[in-house]
Design a protein around this nucleic acid. Structure first.
Length: 872
RNA sequence: GGGGGAUUAGCUCAGUUGGCUAGAGCGUUUGACUGGCAGUCAAAAGGUCAUCGGUUCGAUUCCGAUAUUCUCCA
């Protein structure tokens, strides 16, 4: 069976057991502050488990794209060195939401593995939870009894809380789990060591492939467990491992999931997989990371310099680094692998094919920029090596290596590699110490103290009513206090709310809640795990009461103008630039709108103008809003609605139509486009390879913009006495100015020349040295400098002192011919410092030329006499 | 969100205790050699040293703020 068949078989199997098959959620997580990426199959159902949303279907199965690179599951540094860790992987899973429980979950798992996939029974082991006294949970005898039907006692192992009790977090849903392990060692090895001794011991060929979690408890903030009324099943099976087992391979990377890409890497590198351990590791790293990066990009997460984008960048750089070090790649190469990946996985994940060009471009750009980073790092390292060797050291200071890494992004392992060639090492302890200090700094800066939720009541409500109302009666169901570095605030959850929570690029609403004349301001509204959370600086006096919630209508309607304009812009972009345009991000707030989209060249001024004109045309057409809620997703697609990659949609969606613009959107919009008034594009630029950004304003802001521009224009025009051709007048003035500036420069030169000639007549020879000490009337010290250098060029054997009073201060310049420096041991710097005493000043410079300033210009004549005396 | 760095000619970058009337390479323009191209040689143009403020006799250099950008950590 190839990997495609294995995946499909899983889905077909659970479909036959009445499961709804859903698509994978995006790998990039939105609206969950605790998680950047989907790291398990259950993530997309988290809000169901938490009780925030109802389950539309009690039985679900899917394959989920997951990424484990940060937080609890951080496998990044392992990947490639062994044969079974991955950053991105697929997790096959089936779920029951208050429907079937342990019996069905275990029976079906067994049926699928043994009867369908034909995995030999004697390779399988299972584990069950042994119980925990502290939590008061007994051994999972139910699971034990179910497994006993299929396996002898010595293949059912008891596991502790760490391995066999699953928890979502410090609090929340949890329960015992039962894992299925498989032993794929050779018969010889099995004879030597019993497989049951290797389960959960980190052996690469005795591995867990499926985890069945039975969610039957809720852990309260106090740590106590309470039995859940509705019990759930959550399972996860590693797809790549399953393929390895079924295809009888010893490594995930030997399966067809990875081999096509690895073959291509080998071809590009001119090396064969399996010939050299280090090269093999590099190929595995690259094959793995390629998938992670490509899927992240298609899900809308571009590499960037912070947060999730930075994680993606780091993964890509790790791949480049391994290619650079072990496969001798010096030019971008990873982007050349995308095509093979798309061929291999595009069937199951069509977004890879659709966005292939973007993925290639983004990766190439990133590779280029990292190779540049490496180049500058190598240059810096060269000078470090040089100085270390000059000082006869054999070890490079760890802080220096850390600076190279921290500030310039040059990885430590590369530093060490290059140093080793020069027989140098890095002081690792110093490096680690500096690293630890940096981590502590970051941690203490981001510390957020989140208190427990305080449940006030469980008032029934309608959830979000803000599409139809901007004011409604609400009750506060629960709240908690959050303490950050910049003060503390409260998070409030209502039974019903007119406040729109930040989502889909539209900022959250602000406003007030009021009870008996006491108003509390809501300064922002955000979403957390599908829960609308209102942020307030203070807690209302009687939190249990019935409040009147009012959205700040002014900001809301400005935001709506911009949001609708964004849809019109999207539509216009497709008309003018082509239908390849896809949204890559957007920001909509009361002030302006920002729209990012894929396009591979600069949008020309002409195109921009046409886009702007088209949007304004659509505004004047005054298209009425056609809003449809609860549209089945298939029907929405038939309507031609534009969906976004990387956005998670439910079965039912909301469709917003304005004329021919049709989009899936949860945001708030104007009633008809005429309200927007006017649309002006402020800028167009690139934010990353293949992604452009347009910033624009509408309505009042656009009006103000035009007004100030017109006012400025009017003022400028009146400065020119309102000419018919203002542009011509300005150009003419500019030309005249240039001419005058040139003339002035020539005049000044001539003047300086004249001055210089006059000065030449004043030269007196004292003891064979040409001396000139004069006070000049100039208003700019640059002229003195210029004259000094000119005189030096014309007259040898010269000791020159020029002085002037500029802005009430004395300005002294001393110039000495080169020959005198050596012959007479004269030094302009020392001389000028000494002379400056006469004007109560100080100065300095080089031996042949120095300047000084002083606060008492009256002393200049004395100063000049003193200068003369130096020669006598 | 926090730390560190960078911003100098069209591009890539030098500029080490504050004073070298701000430099290099590539590119551009002009001239010479050549039948033409390529090329070689010669010369020139091109900079408010990111912006604003401070310290100083004097700031590209030191200090502070802002903007942009790179990088590491969370």
């Amino acid at each position: 069976m190839n990997s495609r068949q294995i995946r499909q078989t899983f889905l077909d199997f659970f479909a036959s057991k009445d499961h709804a098959i859903v698509t994978s959620a995006p790998m990039v997580v939105k609206n969950d502050p605790t998680l950047m990426f989907t790291n398990a199959g259950m993530n997309q159902f988290k809000d169901i488990f938490l009780g925030n949303s109802p389950a539309n279907n009690p039985r679900i199965a899917d394959t989920q794209k997951c990424l484990r690179v940060s937080g609890k599951h951080n496998d990044l540094e392992e990947v490639g060195h062994d044969t079974y860790h991955h950053t991105m992987f697929e997790m096959l899973g089936n779920w029951s939401f208050g429907n079937y429980f342990k019996k069905e979950a275990i029976d079906w798992a067994w049926e699928l593995l043994v009867d369908v996939y034909k995995i030999p029974v004697d390779k399988l082991y299972v584990t069950i939870f042994e119980g925990d006294e502290k939590d008061g949970v007994p051994m999972d005898l139910e699971a034990h009894a179910l497994w006993s039907k299929y396996l002898p006692e010595d293949r059912i192992l008891k596991g502790n809380k760490k391995d066999n009790f699953w928890e979502m977090g410090d609090s929340g849903p949890c329960g015992p789990c039962s894992e299925i392990h498989v032993d794929i060692r050779s018969e010889d090895e099995k004879a030597m060591v019993n497989g049951r001794d290797l389960v959960n011991e980190g052996h690469p060929q005795v591995i867990e492939i499926w985890n069945l979690v039975f969610i039957q408890f809720n852990r309260k903030a106090s740590g106590q467990l309470e039995e859940l009324p509705a019990k759930h099943v959550d399972t996860g099976m590693g797809f790549e491992r399953l393929c390895m087992v079924i295809q009888n391979k010893q490594s995930n990377y030997d399966t067809d999931v990875f081999q096509s890409v690895i073959t291509q890497i080998g071809y590009l590198a001119g090396k064969k997989y399996g010939a050299d351990e280090k090269a093999d590791i590099a190929m595995r790293v690259i094959a793995d990371h390629l998938r992670a990066i490509s899927f992240a990009i298609t899900d809308g997460q571009l590499p960037s310099n912070n947060k999730a984008g930075y994680v993606i960048r780091r993964i890509l750089r790790r791949a480049v680094r391994y290619g650079y070090t072990f496969l001798d790649f010096r030019k971008p190469f990873i982007h050349q692998l995308v095509q093979v990946l798309a061929q291999n996985m595009g069937g199951a994940f069509p977004e890879l094919i659709r966005q292939q060009e973007l993925v290639v471009n983004v990766i190439r750009e990133e590779e280029d920029s990292f190779l540049r980073t490496l180049e500058t790092g190598i240059k810096m390292l060269d000078t470090i090596i040089e100085t270390t060797k000059k000082n006869l050291g054999s070890e490079v200071n760890g802080n220096v290596a850390f600076e190279l890494y921290d500030t310039f992004g040059f990885p430590l392992d590369l530093t060490e590699l290059i140093l080793r060639e020069q027989e140098l090492t890095v002081n690792r302890d110093e490096f680690e110490l500096a690293m630890e200090a940096q981590k502590n700094r970051s941690r203490s800066a981001t510390q957020l103290e989140t208190g427990d939720w305080i449940e006030l009541q469980q008032a029934e409500g309608e959830g979000f009513v803000g599409y139809d109302n901007v004011e409604s009666k609400i009750k506060i169901n629960r709240y908690r206090k959050v303490k950050g570095k910049k003060g503390e605030f409260y998070q409030l959850v209502f039974n019903t709310t007119p406040f729109y929570a930040e989502s889909g690029g539209q900022v959250g609403d602000s406003g007030t809640i009021e009870l008996n004349g006491n108003k509390v301001e809501i300064f922002d509204t955000v979403k957390e795990n599908n829960l609308t959370v209102h942020l307030a600086k203070i807690l209302p006096a009687n939190p249990e009461g019935l409040f009147t919630a009012r959205v700040n209508i002014h900001n809301r309607s400005l935001t709506e103008n911009n949001h609708t304009a964004t849809h019109l812009l999207d539509h216009a972009l497709r008309e003018v630039l082509g239908t390849h345009i896809e949204q890559k991000g957007s920001l909509v707030n009361p002030d302006s709108l920002r729209f990012d989209f894929n396009h591979f060249q600069k949008v020309t001024d002409d195109e921009l103008l046409r886009i702007q004109e088209r949007v304004n045309q659509l505004i004047r057409a005054n298209e009425k809003k056609d809003e449809r809620r609860e549209v089945p997703i298939a029907e929405a697609e038939k309507m031609g609605a534009i969906a976004l990659f990387g956005e998670k949609y439910g079965d039912k969606v909301r469709v917003i139509k304005f004329g021919d613009s049709v989009e899936l959107c949860g945001g708030t919009h104007v009633e008809s486009t005429g309200t927007i008034g006017q649309f002006i594009i402020l800028s167009e630029g690139s934010i990353s390879a293949g992604v452009r950004r347009i910033e624009a304003i509408t309505a009042v802001k656009a009006e103000q913009y035009v007004e100030t521009r017109l006012k400025t224009l009017k003022e400028v025009s009146s400065l020119f006495n309102n000419p018919a051709d203002l542009k011509g007048a300005v150009e003419e003035l500019f030309l005249k100015f240039q001419l005058l500036a040139k003339q002035a420069e020539a005049f000044e030169k001539e003047n300086a020349g004249k001055l210089k000639r006059e000065l030449l007549n004043q030269v007196e020879t004292i003891n064979g040295i040409n001396f000139l000490g004069q006070q000049l009337k100039v208003d700019n010290s640059a002229i003195l400098k210029d004259i000094a250098f000119q005189l030096k060029g014309e007259l040898g054997n010269l000791f020159l002192v020029l002085a002037a009073e500029i802005d009430g201060k004395a300005n002294i310049h001393v110039m000495i011919s080169d020959n005198l420096l050596a012959e007479k041991g004269m030094n302009a710097g020392a001389i000028v410092r000494e002379l400056a005493k006469s004007v109560n000043g100080s100065g300095g410079g080089q031996p042949f030329y120095a300047t000084a300033g002083g606060k008492e210009p009256a002393g200049i004549p004395v100063l000049l006499q003193n200068a003369r005396k130096l020669l006598i």
